[in-house]
């Protein structure tokens, strides 16, 4: 692999990892703070992608689709929390898994009824449609760079809100002792509504932003969901920092697993086993640190 190819693959890996982080951070926030396992989290990424496609078709502009799509996913998240998830906080994980699995079915069926089962492509917005030349023959699409930049900016913004603002302190306080936080005047049910809809909006936004580079297809959420759980488990449940590191690791392992050739004692390991590389990484991390990289030790 020459340097330019390596560089391009590195950018791909970062972009993939950052996007994965954006989706998984919502999952780990909701899981870590409210103790709710949301199996439908990936389905909201699909909802975001379909919203981006349909709204872009409708308005003729990807930006308008984003501007309309973001508040729509926030509202959808708030509605789901208010109608369903709110009733699950005090219940065990089995009830949560059942209900959120039901949500996947509802969301997939609604998608099928509203948008059909076709695969769609979303055009890259004109502003970001160019390519940056790296060498005489290789170039890198501007949109992918912008996507990485946007994910990174959102990650920093999220870290800032959680670490440095009073809202973040209230969220963390509520996660550690709900009763006490409430007795200090913090309306925890509103905090939970806010955290859940933010998590859903992050998943939806990731789906919207990824639509021009992936494509929009039925069931895309389930594939994402499994990877998100791998991120959450490797990073440590509830740790946003852990999710960040884990997502980037997965991005690197998955991307380079597909392009690197590795042969040990005449047995071809890579890229033949690339499909398993992410799960092997998870197994290795769990053997080393069962609580995940940044998880709290039990």
């Amino acid at each position: 692999m020459d340097l330019a190819t390596f560089f391009i693959q590195l950018l791909n890996a970062l972009q993939y990892g950052l996007l994965l982080f954006l989706i998984a951070s919502g999952l780990t926030l909701v899981f870590g703070i409210m103790g709710v396992i949301n199996l439908a989290h990936g389905a909201f990424t699909m909802v975001g992608a379909y919203l981006a496609w349909s709204l872009a078709e409708l308005t003729g502009s990807f930006w308008a689709a984003l501007a309309l799509g973001i508040p729509l996913t926030v509202l959808l998240g708030a509605a789901v929390e208010w109608l369903f998830v709110r009733r699950l906080y005090a219940r065990d994980h089995l009830h949560q898994v059942l209900l959120t699995f039901g949500l996947i079915l509802i969301l997939e069926e609604s998608r099928s009824l509203l948008f059909g089962d076709d695969v769609h492509a979303v055009a890259v917005p004109a502003l970001l449609s160019g390519s940056l030349p790296l060498t005489d023959t290789l170039s890198y699409p501007v949109y992918r760079l912008a996507l990485s930049g946007a994910c990174l900016a959102l990650a920093l913004a999220m870290a800032w809100v959680i670490r440095a603002t009073r809202v973040g302190m209230m969220v963390r306080a509520g996660a550690s002792n709900r009763e006490m936080a409430e007795a200090l005047g913090i309306p925890i049910k509103w905090v939970q509504l806010g955290v859940f809809s933010t998590g859903i909006a992050l998943a939806g936004l990731a789906g919207m932003m990824a639509a021009p580079v992936s494509s929009v297809y039925p069931g895309m959420g389930n594939q994402v969901l499994i990877l998100c759980f791998v991120v959450v488990v490797i990073g440590g449940i509830g740790s946003v920092k852990g999710a960040f590191v884990a997502a980037l690791l997965i991005g690197l392992v998955d991307t380079f697993g597909k392009v690197v050739t590795l042969e040990v004692a005449g047995v071809k390991l890579l890229p033949q086993l690339a499909g398993m590389s992410v799960y092997l990484l998870m197994a290795a991390v769990l053997l080393w640190r069962p609580e995940g990289l940044f998880g709290r030790r039990p």
Partner: peptide
């Protein structure tokens, strides 16, 4: 409360600031 109920995952400053009103 009895048993104090401080937030162990928040710093001393954060424990105080989060309650300010």
């Amino acid at each position: 409360p009895e048993g104090r109920g401080i937030f162990p995952n928040l710093s001393v400053r954060e424990n105080l600031v989060m309650a300010a009103r």
